[in-house]
Design a protein around this nucleic acid. Structure first.
Lengths: 211, 211, 211, 211
DNA sequence: GATGAATGAGCATTCATTCAT
DNA sequence: AATGAATGAATGCTCATTCAT
């Protein structure tokens, strides 16, 4: 029984992987359940046994990406005491994560937008939770006196948007250079935007290069 | 003859208006040519007489929005001698333009993304041209000594993304407040991000914080 | 499993039969997939599950007729040692086969011609293979000394055409008499055309003239 | 007024020529009135002024070919006293006429067949009238004692079919040699089929080559 | 006579989803 | 659990024909 459960999970996993490939290759609307079934070495009925419909599969993938990002960002933040450096760390980890998963990034930032009315709420919620994460940490930095007061709500949204756009360009480009190369300049831009004192900024100038 | 031409143009215009409504109500894929025809008080054949296919209509609408934005931004910039204020002016005009055309904004920022592979190039091109506009003026500001040197390419992309995201939230929200309300905080954030000296900033500080 | 396969084949067969009816009633272009589906007691999707498109169904029917004819003709030929009688036998069998399948005959000789450019190659190939069959046996007859030398390639084509035309008239006529009635006269005509010696001809003279 | 009439006729002629090109290039069904209009330097409305519908244009073209063939054949026959030679002459003239008008031949023999139910009667009638022409002259030959009695009705049909098929192969072939090359062999075949005495046949063996 | 905008019925094909086996 | 045959609604696009100007 336990074995069967595992087999079930494996199958489910295979379906999700196949779906990721198909969705990011064809886009949400042009992805056919047939192709997802074929690519996951199942039958169409098999897919429908594990997922009630196409939308759910897409949403599961979206959630997976969101959780992956969130988790990694929180982890990176957790080990860093300095509020400003926390944000730097989170930024880097997000760039790295997207950079390693271009398909997921495309799904998340490109395909999900116009996938249909049904996804708008979900998208808004996700975007809000990312912006909220940023806002929260900016609030921390403000209350610790590391940066001057500002509209952190707006900053959260705007930062997410800036990041988003950089990644989107990278996703849409046919032959892009590694996403992480954008880190130093983006970090400086964002820091400045919230009035991080020059001194701190110099401190970290060194790690302009990363893996 | 002139009258006929005008009639033709009017009909074309009616179709575009109807299409805008349908596209932004249903999304690109779920928009039916039938509905566009119905809403423009034409027949399906009539629509196809004026446009070769669905894609072309969508693209025409996208172009229209892009041109509208570009034109207004350039105009706002043209009358402003101070490089920093130029950017402020452009920002405001973009917020106002989107704010007045929520449907077009939705089309431009939300629906166009996942409309299909065929639109990706067009989208990238448009996003690049906006980012490029910003970059160009940032370069001017740098060369005039108004702001310190920075990676203006990245800044262009990031600014466009920030703006984009703010507008997108506003588009997806069910009951949003006027988009222009975001102007002061966004302006400050962006200014700071490029190291605009505090003094200039104080000038406009009046309409500062909002929740 | 075997049962399922059989069910699948039955369904496919039903579709082909329905298609034959519809194609020969309406012609290739005016045949609607809807009608084929309806007549085969399936849904449109069902038809498309078994055949990728309309063209393929038509081609399958054409192939079926061609194979049926070829097979029967070869069989009739196989049991007959005398080269001239072989040809007589083949002729008779072709007339009988068409005579028993007026719809297929119409499809094969009338509808297939103007069905569209896509079918021209196929048609030419089929016509060539029939003409070739005749040519081959005429060659045999020549080499056995049963008939004098002649341009057997041309004769193959011409014979096929003669046969074709006789059948076509019969197909297009609103109230035709049995096709086989044409056999004796056609046989004599064809025999004479290749110079079959009178003696052999007399053998079968019995069922000679008809109006 | 006379000039206008002439202009009208010219226009009509241009339309027919254009239609011939389009029909034989695309086939009856795939020929668009738009293209016919464009190619005849008229408007769609213009075409409809001169012809009530598409079918009529096609029929006019068919008639034209039929008349051309008939007329030339009758002419060739008229100047020839010997009944057997008459038939030879008609055959040659038909081969030449088709050979010089491959588009018309395609229209007449290929496209017309599957153009739709509406044309079947017309086609049958045309085929009958050609077969009838042959039959008539065979009857003459019989009554003059030039050939032995035979089923001339069938022979007419079969001959027309033989000729038809030879021309059809030539039409469908991608790179055919001149149609007239088939004349000598076809003539001999047909002669033999009606039992033309050997002597006559030898007489004409000379003109195996033609213009 | 001519034009070309407009009409609208028609149609092949796709695809998410269901369900008997 | 899994299969794959079957469903049927949905939709972009074509084109002969009409008719106001």
């Amino acid at each position: 029984m336990v074995r069967e459960q595992k087999r079930g999970e494996e199958r489910k996993e295979r379906i999700l992987e196949a779906a990721l490939g198909v969705f990011s290759r064809r886009g949400y609307r042009d992805a056919a359940m047939d192709e997802i079934a074929g690519e996951s070495e199942t039958s169409k009925g098999g897919v429908y046994f594990h997922f009630p419909n196409k939308q759910t599969i897409f949403l599961a993938l979206l959630d997976r990406m969101a959780n992956l990002l969130m988790k990694r960002a929180e982890e990176a933040i957790a080990v860093e005491p300095d509020p400003v450096k926390r944000i730097d760390a989170a930024l880097l980890v997000v760039l790295k994560t997207f950079g390693d998963h271009r398909s997921l990034a495309r799904l998340f930032l490109v395909e999900a937008m116009g996938a249909g009315r049904e996804f708008n709420n979900k998208m808004l919620e996700m975007r809000r939770s990312f912006a909220g994460l940023i806002t929260r940490h900016l609030d921390d930095a403000v209350s610790e006196g590391a940066i001057p007061p500002l509209d952190t709500n707006l900053a959260g949204v705007a930062w997410f948007g800036a990041l988003n756009e950089v990644v989107t360009h990278w996703v849409l480009e046919s032959d892009p250079e590694p996403l992480e190369h954008q880190y130093p300049a983006l970090r400086d831009l964002l820091r400045r935007s919230i009035g991080v004192p020059q001194s701190t900024q110099i401190d970290n100038e060194t790690n302009g290069n990363m893996a």
